[in-house]
């Protein structure tokens, strides 16, 4: 697969490590969240047949974490964003 890195252009997926569902960005604050919320965060993942947002890490490259929107059926890469930008857009900051 080719992943179109927002900073580095098209890169082979062999340079990356995949983590899976990008919902891992939405980590609840441990001081305020319930056990159930943390449980769901730690264990529950989507695994759709079709469009999926996944976290990929450019380990053999610039060490960017990316959110890759990809079809799990065709491997088509629909969109690639820096995970940092996605995190900020979802209200994460410090």
């Amino acid at each position: 697969m080719i992943i179109n890195h927002p900073l580095l252009g098209p890169r082979d997926s062999a340079e990356f490590v995949v983590l899976g569902d990008a919902c891992l960005i939405d980590r609840p604050d441990g001081m305020n969240a319930t056990f159930e919320e943390l449980h769901d965060y730690a264990y529950v993942r989507d695994n759709p047949a079709g469009e999926h947002r996944e976290l990929w890490y450019h380990e053999q490259g610039d060490r960017s974490w990316l959110v890759v929107t990809r079809s799990t059926l065709t491997h088509e890469v629909i969109k690639v964003d820096l995970a940092r930008d996605v995190a900020r857009a979802r209200g994460r900051s410090r």
């Binding site: 490590v17 983590l19 891992l24 960005i25 980590r27 976290l55 890490y57 380990e59 060490r63 960017s64 974490w65 820096l82 995970a83 940092r84 996605v86 995190a87 900020r88 994460r92 900051s93 410090r94």
Partner: peptide, 18 residues
Amino acid sequence: VLVFRNLEFARQCLWPDL
């Protein structure tokens, strides 16, 4: 390798403005 990867995850995905 794993720790470094996880630290980058925390830095970029969890607390991007630290």
